[in-house]
């Protein structure tokens, strides 16, 4: 990620804007900030960044950029 004085942000699920460090920030860094009681990030999730799926093996190495769009998907009831 390019070092700038401006704040960098990523957008989660087209809804939440999260500020990220201007140092290299990975997907795992962002997920850890979300990983609380209301949002238990288990293994049954899929993540796409800018509409490209990032496999679980790459979560810890996938660097985020300013205005990346992160979508997190999980199973819900359905027929």
């Amino acid at each position: 990620m390019t070092e700038t004085n401006e704040k960098s942000v990523v957008v989660i699920n087209n809804q939440y804007v999260i500020e990220i460090s201007n140092r290299e920030t990975t997907l795992v860094d962002v997920l850890e900030r979300l990983n609380n009681d209301n949002f238990p990030l288990g293994q049954h999730f899929a993540i796409a960044v800018n509409n490209s799926i990032v496999t679980k093996q790459r979560w810890s190495t996938h660097s985020l950029n300013h205005e990346d769009k992160i979508n997190i998907f999980g199973a819900i009831a359905g027929g």
């Binding site: 699920n13 087209n14 209301n38 238990p40 049954h44 819900i76």
Partner: peptide, 18 residues
């Protein structure tokens, strides 16, 4: 059994059906 996949709300309660 069938289920769907949707964006999950990071601010809300998740309901783990799995």
């Amino acid at each position: 059994v069938t289920m769907a996949l949707k964006r999950i709300d990071p601010s809300g309660q998740t309901d783990d059906i799995l």
